[in-house]
Structures are given as structure tokens and as C-alpha cells.
Design a protein around this nucleic acid. Structure first.
Length: 665
RNA sequence: GCUGCUGUAGCUCAGUGGUAGAGCGCGUCAUUGGUAAUGACGAGGCCGGGAGUUCAAUUCUCCCUAGCAGCACCA
């Protein structure tokens, strides 16, 4: 007999080998039906797994949503694999986990990879397996027996996987009925019938490398989204639609903000409406950085390759650099355009080496430190074609870059100072929550182990001292994620629909000052090596504006809105007055345009609302006679009747950038 | 870079082995209308580029190119 303690504290004595399912049945038929799995001493286990020692037991039902979803998605993945092997004999199975919204499974097809056209048939087969309510049975195998089985079945990927598990280990497999089996740690639901056949959808196919490594064979991955019931699935599909509506690429076209075209793939053509947003954001950042004692500089776009060799970029990063020959191209049709021994230059992929060159001009004293050198630096990186994505991943971009040259004993203060600056800016820009991560040394790196130890510890200390190493910043350390020359702090924003974006970063670098021989004269009269903090808050203007557009779903706060107000007439007799209103708003610094077209007011309101103009000032004869305007705010039906002066004052205040508002308040 | 899908009017998309169609937008005319689409008429296309099959290719095949989704990459 063993003792089972339930969540309410009650204890039951049962036979050794009793399952959680039997206990559930004992408690009541309702629970027996609802129970999906068991939490045994804190760990989720199969409900059919026999209990053989005294345990704390809690039964998991669909009310324990997080665990239930995880179980269901994992089971969907197995059902997917079973269905695929049934429909496409000879397909090898590999690996199929749950994801944030569903599941996937990677297959090695015997012929061509799967396509979208295969999905409906597979879904149908999955539903059949679910409806058959096949029991899912756990079985323990000895490792070598299992490897032999996989090899016999031609499952080479599974065999490889099993062979890497420790020798002599017992490995669990799960049977679906008696005719299909996969190696799996579990846990699983008791049977396929616990899944809702209407709660999943196969969404897409893609290629994926075996074990995530480009050098390995490419497998065919099938993705699905999976939920506990149809309602959840539907809600998720609606969320996807909402997210698609705020896609910055779509809004960028609709709002006439920017475009891309093949002649400059991965580089943005900013239209005037979009560039207004850029200019406002840049002006704001410039005010904030000037206020924080940064000194702004501007450095060359193209530098000699030897400079990039010295900085180390030529060796490690050349494949991503745009290289330019320093030579007049040949005009002779038969000759190569560029000779083989041309001197090479490169477009800067980053600003730091140029900033070190400025630092090195003249002799620097310890009194000059910390020196905060900022640049809105335009960089080029030759990103792989498949990586490009709207404004979020581009080949030409402008960073809000700065490098802080300082002494080691100033690092913690400078990092803390930076955290405060960043915090204020994110809040000003409408992002209330963000996470902080410390990315530790990568495999490919410069510098000594001691240097990395020191650099990592400094950043860790700074965040702790800034009081930001806590839960509210989801503080964590990420091994292997650092830059090749330094560890870095990463700042991840959360947007309006809960997605996260890494924007801000600060990196502590001992390597580059050494390589490029930067030094200052200390109090002791000797030469010393400064450390260099690389930092950005927005990251790049392109990407950050993309994130802002999605965050606000195109309805930008008035200070950033390309057009802040439209003056729309109801009848042409009000045109003169509308022009007067427009002029007055313009004189007050508002970005306003008149709409005097011979169209109905309904049409104009609709059009400017769709264009996401935050203020529509409607004027007809009534307003013209009384010297008033009817102000309609975007998204609201009610309107304000204001005198012209009141309207000017209101819009002027609304159009102030957040930092300017603070000082006037 | 890898896998799959896609490329037709300014935009969103139909369609066909015999060189094209809708809605919106645009232009002209009429309409002067109080808060999310007034009506009529009209102008727009080398059907992404190249090669092949065919009497004939926007349509079928191959290559290239760009975009999209994912993978890998992101100093």
C-alpha cells in the first residue's frame, strides 16, 4: 500500500501500482473524464503511469490551461507524425515539439518536401486518428534495442538521436494504439480522443535543418496551431488577423510612408509622410542625448579596407560587408571592369572604428573621460536575402549609436546612467514594459578569458546596482549570445499586442581600444587603455519606426503623426474660412492640410480616418460665421465645438514631443 | 544562403493555349451635400525577365529575379 496526498490535504491509501486515472475514477466519474494528466510531486506525468511510492498528487484538467495546452500540442505533434507516416510511407520521423501557439514536426520525406496542398489531406487523417480515440501507451526500452529497431525501420534520424543518449539508459516510447510508435520523453494524454478534432489547424510547411544546423540535411517541417477547443482556435485566428492588419509593411503602403523596390532591395525609400516621423524621432533623440552630455559627431561612409582589418571586422565580418574598389572602372569592353589588384574600401557596417579614430585625435586626459560620442550613423550590412523583412531587417540603416570611452571604475556609473536614459525614452515613446538580458561570451570571440570574466561581471554588477536585475525586467543571462568582441546587455520592448523586440543594447568592450590603440593619460602621467561602451537605445531608426507603426497600429501619437490635422470643408462657400484656419494652424507649427475638394463630408471624414489623421477639423457655414471649428478626434464620433484660438492651443499642446511637454508642464 | 509558395492596371485580386477583366484609386462632367463611400462617363496593362515546347504562350516546362512564410544568419 502507498499513501497518496491530494491537493486538499486528504490522504488516500491505495495499492502499489495504482494509476492516477484509477484515483480520479475513485473520486468521481466527472473528474475521471476531465483528467488529462497528473502532477506527481510537482512533475507532470501520464495519468496511466502506475504509482509505486508515497506521493503528492494533483490531477490536471483543461482548467490547468498552461499544462493542458502543452500536453495537447505535444499530442497534436504526435498525431501529425502518425498521420504523415500513414499517408506517405517511407517518410522518416525526426522531432516534433510544441510551440507558443501550437506545434510542428520535422520529417525527412522519401521524395519531394511537403507543400501546402498536402495539408488538408493530412488534417483529415489527423482527425480520423483523434476520433478513433487510440490509447497512448508508455513503454520503456533499452537503448540498444531501440537503436536496432529504428535502424531496421529505416529511421536513421531517430537512430542517430537515440545513439547519442547515454549508453545503458532506458528510453520511453509511446504507442498510439498498437500500430504506431515514437520515441518520446512524454508526458502524453491517455488517448488521442482527448484532443478536440476542431481545435487545430495545419498552417504551413517550411524547410528546417536537422538539429538546427545549416550543415545538416534540410528536413520538411509542418507547422500547426493547436488549442483545447474550437473557441480558442478561433480566437487565435482572429488575433493573427489583427496582427496582420497592423503589419508595418501594409500600413507603410496605405499611409504612403515608404516603399521598397528590387533596385535597392533591403533599403528603404522614405516618402515625405514617413520621413516626417523619422525627423521628429531623430530631433527628440538628439534633444535627449544632448541633455545627457553626449557629443554628436559624423564620420565617413566608406573607409579603407586596412582600417577594417585593424578593427578585426575584415576577418570576422567581411562576408556581410559591401566592398568598394578604390579604382576608376575600366571603360574597355574586353577588360575586367575592376583589376584584380585594386585597393579595397568598404561601406561601414558600424561606426565604432571611426569613433575610435576621433578619440585618437590629440592626446586625451583622464579628465576627458567619460567621453560620450554619439552619431546617427548610416551603416550598410549585406544581410542574407532570406533575412530581409520590411523595416525590421534592412541592408542600409541608421543607428542611434554612441560610444562611451571611460575608465574601468566608471563603467558601473555609465551603464546605470544609460539604463536611466533608456528607461525615460521608452516610456516617452509609449512602451511601458521591457526586459533586460545579459548576453554572455559566444564561441567565436576575441580576447582572453579573464577579460570576458571581468566584462561580464561589470555589466552584471551595473544592472544590479541600477536596481533593474529583478522580476519586473525579466532579468536573465543568455550564454553564448554575446558579440564577438564583448558581452552585452539587451533591452527587449513589449508592444501593444504582447510581442517583444530587442532594441536597446549596451556592450562593454576591452578589445577594440586595444586593437586600435586608443589611450589616455592618467593621473599618474602614464598611458592607459580606456574601455569602450557601445550602446544604442532605438537600435536603428528603420526598425524602431517599424515597431512604432505596429505598436500604434498606424495611429501615431500626434507629435509623430505625418499629418496632424486636416481642415475639411462641407461646402465651397466655407473655403476661404478653411484656408484661414489652415494658415493659422500652420503658423502655430501644426502639420495641417486643407481638404477643399468638392466631396461630401462623409467621404472626407472616412478618407482621413482611414489615413489615420488624428484630428479632423470640419468647417461649414456655421463655423465660418461664428469663427469656430468642429473638431473630430480620430476614432471618436463626438466632436468638440471650439473657437479657432482654442483649437490652435489644444492642437499645439497635443503636438508637442513628450520631452517638451514635461518642461512646459 | 536553404525549403515551399507567389509575381496580371497605382492598390487588392479574378481569369484564359488564340495577347485580358472587376472593385478601389485616378481624370472629366454633373452634384454644394453637416461627420466613415453621390452619380455618370473616361483613361490606365511588354500578364516580373530570359529560354524552350507549340501553328499560337500571360496560361505548359526550365532558368533567372523579386516578394511572402519558415529555417539558418543578425558582429
Amino acid at each position: 500500500m502507498i499513501k497518496i496526498t491530494l491537493p486538499d490535504g486528504s490522504v488516500r491509501e491505495v495499492e502499489t501500482g495504482t494509476t492516477a486515472a484509477q484515483i480520479a475514477a475513485d473520486i468521481g466519474p466527472g473528474l475521471a473524464k476531465a483528467a488529462l494528466a497528473a502532477r506527481i510531486d510537482g512533475e507532470v506525468r501520464d495519468i496511466m503511469r502506475p504509482l509505486d511510492v508515497d506521493t503528492q498528487l494533483a490531477l490536471i484538467t483543461s482548467r490547468d490551461e498552461e499544462e493542458a495546452l502543452e500536453l495537447a500540442r505535444h499530442d497534436f505533434a504526435h498525431v501529425l507524425a502518425e498521420a504523415v507516416q500513414k499517408l506517405y510511407p517511407g517518410t522518416q520521423i525526426t522531432f516534433g515539439p510544441s510551440t507558443d501557439d501550437g506545434f510542428y514536426y520535422d520529417f525527412a520525406p522519401s521524395g519531394d518536401p511537403f507543400t501546402d496542398d498536402d495539408l488538408p489531406k493530412i488534417e483529415e487523417e489527423m482527425r480520423r486518428i483523434i476520433k478513433a480515440d487510440k490509447p497512448l501507451r508508455r513503454e520503456v526500452w533499452e537503448r540498444n534495442d531501440l537503436i536496432k529497431l529504428w535502424e531496421k525501420d529505416g529511421e536513421t534520424f531517430k537512430a542517430e538521436w537515440a545513439a547519442e543518449l547515454p549508453e545503458g539508459d532506458e528510453i520511453s516510447v509511446y504507442w498510439s494504439g498498437d500500430d504506431w510508435m515514437d520515441m518520446c520523453r512524454g508526458p502524453h494524454l491517455p488517448s488521442t480522443g482527448k484532443l478536440d478534432p476542431q481545435a487545430f489547424q495545419l498552417t504551413r510547411v517550411s524547410g528546417a535543418y536537422w538539429r538546427g544546423d545549416q550543415r545538416n540535411p534540410q528536413l520538411s517541417r509542418i507547422y500547426g496551431t493547436g488549442w483545447l477547443n474550437k473557441k480558442q482556435l478561433k480566437a487565435h485566428l482572429v488575433r493573427l488577423e489583427e496582427a496582420a492588419k497592423r503589419d508595418h509593411r501594409k500600413l507603410g503602403q496605405e499611409m504612403d510612408l515608404f516603399h521598397f523596390q528590387p533596385e535597392a532591395q533591403g533599403s528603404v525609400f522614405w516618402h515625405s509622410q514617413g520621413y516626417v516621423m523619422w525627423r521628429e524621432l531623430e530631433a527628440y533623440m538628439r534633444r535627449k542625448q544632448d541633455g545627457a552630455d553626449y557629443k554628436e559627431v559624423k564620420t565617413p561612409q566608406i573607409m579603407d579596407a586596412r582600417q577594417w582589418e585593424a578593427s578585426g571586422h575584415w576577418g570576422k565580418y567581411r562576408e556581410n560587408m559591401f566592398v568598394v574598389p578604390d579604382e576608376v572602372p575600366s571603360v574597355d569592353d574586353d577588360a575586367p571592369v575592376i583589376s584584380a589588384d585594386a585597393d579595397m574600401m568598404a561601406l561601414k557596417p558600424m561606426n565604432c572604428p571611426a569613433h575610435v579614430l576621433i578619440f585618437r585625435q590629440g592626446i586625451k586626459s583622464y579628465r576627458d573621460l567619460p567621453m560620450r560620442m554619439a552619431e546617427f550613423g548610416c551603416c550598410h550590412r549585406n544581410e542574407p536575402h532570406g533575412a530581409l523583412h520590411g523595416l525590421l531587417r534592412v541592408r542600409q540603416f541608421t543607428q542611434d549609436d554612441a560610444h562611451i570611452f571611460c575608465r574601468e571604475d566608471q563603467i558601473v556609473d555609465e551603464v546605470r546612467h544609460f539604463c536611466d536614459l533608456l528607461d525615460g525614452i521608452y516610456k516617452d515613446l509609449g512602451f511601458e514594459s521591457y526586459a533586460i538580458k545579459l548576453a554572455l561570451r559566444p564561441e567565436k570571440r576575441f580576447g582572453t578569458e579573464e577579460m570576458w570574466d571581468k566584462a561580464e561581471q561589470n555589466l552584471r554588477d551595473a544592472v544590479h546596482e541600477a536596481g533593474r536585475a529583478g522580476e519586473e525586467y525579466q532579468w536573465e543571462e543568455l550564454p553564448g549570445e554575446g558579440a564577438f568582441y564583448s558581452p552585452k546587455l539587451e533591452f527587449h520592448l513589449t508592444d501593444a499586442i504582447g510581442r517583444t523586440w530587442q532594441c536597446g543594447t549596451i556592450q562593454l568592450d576591452y578589445v577594440l581600444p586595444e586593437r586600435l590603440d586608443a589611450s589616455y593619460i592618467g593621473e599618474d602621467g602614464a598611458r592607459h587603455r580606456p574601455v569602450m561602451l557601445h550602446r544604442a537605445i532605438l537600435g536603428t531608426f528603420e526598425r524602431f519606426l517599424g515597431i512604432m507603426i505596429e505598436h500604434h497600429a498606424g495611429r501615431m501619437p500626434t507629435w509623430l503623426a505625418p499629418t496632424q490635422a486636416v481642415v475639411a470643408t462641407i461646402v465651397t462657400d466655407a473655403n476661404d474660412y478653411a484656408s484661414e484656419v489652415t494658415e493659422k494652424l500652420k503658423a502655430a507649427g501644426i502639420r495641417v492640410s486643407p481638404d477643399l475638394r468638392n466631396e461630401k463630408i462623409n467621404y472626407k471624414v472616412r478618407e482621413h480616418s482611414l489615413a489615420k489623421v488624428p484630428n479632423i477639423l470640419v468647417v461649414g457655414m456655421r463655423e465660418a460665421e461664428e469663427g469656430k471649428v468642429a473638431l473630430r478626434k480620430l476614432g471618436q464620433k463626438e466632436q468638440l465645438f471650439l473657437t479657432l484660438d482654442e483649437a490652435v492651443a489644444l492642437l499645439q499642446d497635443e503636438a508637442l514631443a513628450p520631452d517638451l511637454k514635461e518642461t512646459t508642464a
